[in-house]
Design a protein around this nucleic acid. Sequence first.
DNA 1: ATGCAAATGCAAACCGTTTGCATATATAAG
DNA 2: CTTATATATGCAAACGGTTTGCATTTGCAT
Lengths: 142, 142
Amino acid sequence: MKDMNFGRDLARKGLRNTKHRAAILSILEQSEQPLTAEQVFLELKERGEPANLSTVYRVLDVFTDKRMVKKLNITGGGRSLYEYDRMVHNHHLLCLGCKKILAIGSCPLGDYEKILAEKTDFAIEGHRLDIYGYCPECRREN
Amino acid sequence: MKDMNFGRDLARKGLRNTKHRAAILSILEQSEQPLTAEQVFLELKERGEPANLSTVYRVLDVFTDKRMVKKLNITGGGRSLYEYDRMVHNHHLLCLGCKKILAIGSCPLGDYEKILAEKTDFAIEGHRLDIYGYCPECRREN
DNA sequence: ATGCAAATGCAAACCGTTTGCATATATAAG
DNA sequence: CTTATATATGCAAACGGTTTGCATTTGCAT
């Protein structure tokens, strides 16, 4: 967080340092929540670095390829979310009321994957786990 | 499986017994794999009960509402899959090679959800867990 | 400073899915 | 069995998020 140098991060990944890319990376790095492409697009406008929506998609794609950003499909259908990749394995807890998303650092699947690999003879590469429920605030409200 | 009466199942759910609905339910019930709307559409044609694609979507929606079918978003983006709901909690193991999907009856998340509920004060309602890897056949091939 | 590969803007295409409306059909009432 | 009516279907058009082709601009190596 402190003293981020996104230009250097881009160069390290072999990417050109453009203001849009630096801005998008900054937006995602600073966001508490994963963001949609459109939210990134709108935030760029607010920051005075307006970009075309297709540029936003292209940049997010590149970042995803380079493992700088994670693309999430938590909501199931429709739109994707993007979050800054802090290089930790995590999952997400989604509030069905206010739709807020909490990142969860722990993962209960290590042993299970081993058991599953034995049982099925699959080479397990990974998993997706999202958990949903109602957050304390939303529980209080109804 | 034996002696299925889909017309009766439909009536029990308050749905009219049409040939498309009975056929779609039968197709899903007999399928080893979850199917896309288009696959259902094509199979209907093969069975001599051709339906419009929008009808297929509407029927799948109704079935999903009535909990006769589960709508899956395993692949992340793009298309949804539909599977006959056998009323058991399950997860899916997807082969990244041949894309086949295995249903897994076991679920490792019971205790974890309790712990998470305590830690976060969320009321946990459910979760989504998909696991991916390479099946025995695909492992052998490369 | 300059040349070239890569990034961007713009508009149009894309693809899975949904919708409005006219017609056809299943079911309940007589 | 017939009829009335609510519901299901077909068709074509719209939709929403995302992608793409192409002309223009920009970053960066030289």
